[in-house]
């Protein structure tokens, strides 16, 4: 009995230790750096100067706040649109039709493709000098490639959002399809025989049933799109820049003092993501309980 109780913690111990050291170690180290603790260059004191500089200094504020707005917009739009698209597509793919296997395969094809490749692909396809624009020009749909809408390197992050959707739809899709598969169709059959039409069944049965899976996936995608730099680095504009790109630039700055600011910005990103995720879980748990 006693042995049983300690057995599982003991077995989990090594893994947990590594995760804890890596996670809290790097977070702690980063946090220390963000407080200006950099013994290599002789800084051994602690201060919030870097945070202040990132958010409010004349040099950085004009970068930070528009960047924050863009990041919030891109992360929420990518998450929401790809989740909605994936739900729709998964429901379509659940039906039986000719070529279903192929459709499912195509749907999930880009899952193993790195984000970087997707971003470059976006450029090749949708830039004003890209394939789509040239085709449209050749076909006379637009007069010149310049008339093609600015879908990459645009100030609203449309290209970035498009690239994220392209990629995350498949991720959401895998999760939603797995949930749908395990639920079967009998819940919906019950609702239907009780009189629910297609839309009512979706709203009152299918959606609530896939919601937990969808929510976990949304958190992952939101946190990811909020904090990674490859796609916005390639598809973004000079101003505003998404926060992770900004953090990277501080980081790559040869001036070692900028490193504290890069770390401060990274910590800010982490804090915002945590706060939003908790808020989201809190609100959705409450709405689920209420309805």
């Amino acid at each position: 009995m006693k042995w049983e109780r300690v057995r599982i913690p003991l077995m989990l111990g090594p893994t947990m230790a590594i995760i804890t050291i890596l996670f809290f170690g790097s977070l702690g180290f980063g946090f220390l750096q963000s407080l200006g603790y950099q013994p290599q260059i002789g800084n051994t004191g602690f201060s919030l100067d870097a945070y202040y500089a990132v958010m409010f200094s004349e040099r950085s504020a004009s970068q930070f706040w528009p960047g924050l707005a863009l990041t919030l917009w891109v992360a929420s739009a990518s998450t929401f649109i790809s989740a909605a698209l994936a739900v729709g597509l998964s429901l379509l793919l659940r039906r039986t039709f000719f070529g279903k296997k192929l459709a499912v395969f195509l749907f999930q094809l880009n899952l193993p493709i790195p984000h970087l490749v997707i971003a470059v692909g976006m450029l090749l396809l949708f830039a004003q000098s890209g394939l789509v624009a040239r085709f449209a020009g050749e076909l006379g749909i637009i007069d010149a490639p310049r008339d093609f809408p600015v879908l990459t390197r645009d100030p609203y992050g449309l290209g970035i959002i498009l690239a994220y959707i392209w990629k995350e739809v498949a991720f959401f899709g895998i999760i939603v399809m797995a949930v749908l598969q395990s639920l079967g169709e009998d819940y919906e059959a019950v609702a239907q025989s009780l009189g629910a039409n297609r839309w009512q069944r979706f709203r009152t049965v299918t959606l609530p049933l896939i919601m937990p899976g969808l929510m976990s996936a949304s958190i992952i995608v939101f946190a990811f799109t909020f904090g990674t730099y490859e796609v916005p680095r390639i598809l973004g504009v000079q101003h505003p820049k998404m926060l992770p790109v900004l953090a990277l630039e501080y980081f790559l700055n040869p001036d070692l003092n900028a490193r504290a600011e890069g770390m401060a910005l990274s910590i800010i990103i982490a804090v915002i993501v945590f706060a939003l995720v908790f808020l989201y879980m809190y609100v959705s748990a409450r709405t689920v309980r209420k309805s």
Binding site: Q192, S193, A196
Partner: peptide, 10 residues
């Protein structure tokens, strides 16, 4: 089905 009024219990 939703207008048939035949309710199924599984």
């Amino acid at each position: 089905p939703e207008r048939r009024g035949a309710v199924m219990v599984f």
